Computed example of a mutant assay.
Amino acid sequence: MTNIAEALRDLNEDRVSALVDEKLQQGISPVDIIKECNEGIAAVGDLFASGQYYLTELMFSAEILQGVMAKLEPLLASIGGGEQSAGTVVIGTVKGTYP
């Protein structure tokens, strides 16, 4: 487990923020940082599922992740090359009664 993932799992907001800043200074991709955060959030989910963490810890981990994403979103937009469409999705249902 990475340092960011461990800090997020342990709900250490200050450490997560410091580690994210450190990785950004080292030139680590924001996408790689998000992957590390996902590992930490998955660990929080496992602790919640096992009953070791409660809803408050789950919500706090989400707040920590929102703070990380607030730092990374401008960087993600700059590497994304602007708005690009992945395609069109069409959703529909059948009209009438079902036998």
Rank of each mutant, 00 (worst) to 15 (best):
Q84Y: 05
P30V: 03
E22Q: 10
A49W: 00
I28E: 08
V89A: 11
Q84C: 10
C37K: 07
F60I: 08
P74M: 12
Y98D: 14
E6Y: 10
C37A: 14
L19R: 05
M59L: 12
L47R: 05
T88V: 13
L11W: 04
L24K: 01
V90I: 14
I33F: 05
S78R: 11
I79R: 07
Y53L: 01
M69A: 12
P99S: 13
T93D: 09
E36Q: 14
I91C: 04
G51S: 01
Y98W: 12
R9D: 14
A18C: 05
V16H: 03
T2E: 11
G51D: 00
N38Q: 15
Y54L: 13
G80K: 12
A5K: 06
D32Q: 07
M69K: 09
P74Y: 11
A86F: 14
E57F: 02
P30S: 09
D32C: 02
A86L: 15
R15E: 15
Q84L: 08
A62N: 07
G27S: 02
I79L: 14
I91D: 08
E39L: 15
T56Y: 02
D46E: 15
E39F: 08
V89L: 13
V94K: 10
E36W: 04
Q26T: 09
G81T: 03
E22W: 01
C37M: 14
L72Y: 07
T88L: 12
I79G: 05
I64G: 06
S50W: 00
A70M: 12
Y53F: 08
I28Y: 01
S17L: 15
G67D: 08
N12A: 13
G40Y: 04
G96W: 02
N3D: 15
I28W: 00
E36H: 07
L11T: 02
S17C: 08
E39S: 11
K23I: 06
L11Q: 06
L72G: 02
E13F: 08
V94G: 05
A62G: 05
A7W: 09
K23A: 15
E6L: 15
V90F: 13
